[in-house]
Amino acid sequence: MLTEVNATRYVTPLREGGSLPGIVEADNLGTYVMKFTGAGQGRKTLVAEVICGELARRLGLRVPELVTIQLDPVIGLSEPDEEVQDLLKASGGLNLGMDYLPGSIGFDPLAYEVDAAEAGRVVWFDALINNVDRSWRNPNLLVWHGDLWLIDHGATMIWHHNWPTAQASAAKPYNASDHALAAFAPDIASAAAALAPLVTEELLAAVVADVPDEWLAGEPGFDTTDALRRAYAEPLLARAASIHERIVFDAPARTRPSQAPGWLADRLTPRPDRAKSTNDKDGVK
C-alpha cells in the first residue's frame, strides 16, 4: 500500500496542469505535488496515476514517490483564488501526492540526450499503458540530478473510461510518432525482451492493490473492488506480451524549435547533432 500522510499546508497551485494540481506540505515533513479527487477528470485519473506510476517503478523506471494524502479543506481558506478554494472544498478526504523534486527542470528533446536503450524502455512502457500524453508538445518528463524522471500518468489506460469496449481498445496499436523520445532511435526490441517477462499476474496484482478501495467503489458493471482490480490488470497483462509488435512510428505531425533558454541548454547534456548550432546561436565559437 502507498504511504498515507496528512496535508498540513497548501503552498501554491500549479497552473500548468489542466487539473490544477497544487504543492502541499505534509506531516512527514515532505513536500508533494497533490492531485485532487475533486478535479474535473475525477478519481479515475488518480487510479491511473497509481497503477501506471507504481508499475513503472517496479519495472525500473524513475517515477517520483507516490503517497496518499488526507486533506482537510480548511487548510486552503487563505487561498485567494476562488477556483482553488472550490477545488479544495470538493476534495476533502483522500487524495494523491507525488514527491516534489526541487530543482528539476522540464525535459527538452533538443537539449538533453537520451540513449536508445532508455528511450526504448520509456516508449515500450508508454505503449503498454497507452499513454497519450508524452508527446513533444507535453513530454511529462523531468530532468533531475541528470536523470530522466517520468511524471503524470493520468491520461493512460483510456479503456477504463468505457469498460464494455476495454478489450477491443486495449488490443489497438500504439502510435509513437509524436512521442517525446521518438527522435532518439528507441530500442523497442531490447526493452520488450527485458521488461515484458516482468509483467506477470503477480506483479499486476501487487500494483492494483495499491489503489485505495474508495477510489474504486461504485464503478458501474462491477460488484466488488476486487473484480475491478482484475479488470485493470487483464489488459496490461495481455498487452505486455505483444505490444512491441504494434508500436507505430510514422512521420511526426510537425517539428518545433527547442524551448530551452541558453542557460538551460548549457546545464543539460546537448545532443551531438545540435551542439554546433546551439553554440553558434548563443555566440559561442
Rank of each mutant, 00 (worst) to 15 (best):
D126H: 03
D27Q: 05
G146H: 09
L236H: 00
A176Y: 03
M157C: 12
S78L: 13
T37K: 02
A253P: 00
R229A: 09
R57K: 14
V84L: 08
D27W: 06
K89E: 14
A117L: 10
Q85A: 09
G22I: 04
N131T: 11
K35N: 08
D72E: 13
A176T: 03
I75V: 15
G146C: 10
D86A: 15
I151A: 00
R15C: 00
T200W: 08
A168R: 11
K285T: 10
Q167Y: 10
D280A: 14
L141G: 04
A176L: 06
F249P: 02
W144K: 02
L216N: 00
L148W: 05
G97N: 10
L141C: 11
N138D: 09
R246C: 08
D273A: 09
G53R: 07
A192W: 04
L148E: 03
W215G: 03
R267E: 13
Y100S: 02
G42F: 02
E16H: 07
G97A: 10
A119S: 13
P272E: 10
L46W: 03
P21I: 03
R230Y: 04
A196S: 15
D86G: 08
A209E: 15
E65Q: 15
L101M: 12
L59S: 07
E202C: 10
A227T: 07
H153L: 11
A26S: 15
E202I: 09
E65G: 05
H244Q: 13
D213A: 12
W263T: 01
D27G: 09
L20M: 12
D133Q: 06
V5M: 05
A183D: 08
D223E: 15
S242W: 13
D81K: 11
L46V: 07
A170V: 07
R15Y: 07
P212T: 04
R134C: 09
L94G: 00
P270V: 12
T224A: 05
L14Q: 08
G103V: 05
A217V: 15
N95P: 01
L110D: 03
L237I: 12
G42Q: 07
T225Q: 02
E245S: 13
L61A: 06
G97V: 05
H179S: 06
W136Y: 14
A90I: 13
V67Y: 03
L96S: 01
P102T: 12
A206R: 14
N6H: 14
L128V: 08
I51Q: 00
G221T: 04
S242H: 13
T224V: 04
Q167C: 11
V248C: 05
R254C: 01
L14H: 02
M1R: 06
A182M: 13
V284Y: 10
W159S: 06
L94C: 13
A48R: 04
L88T: 09
I23L: 15
S258V: 07
R256L: 12
L141F: 14
A170E: 06
S169K: 08
G38Y: 00
M34K: 00
I105K: 11
A194P: 03
E219M: 14
P257G: 12
V114Q: 04
D280Y: 15
P257E: 10
A265E: 06
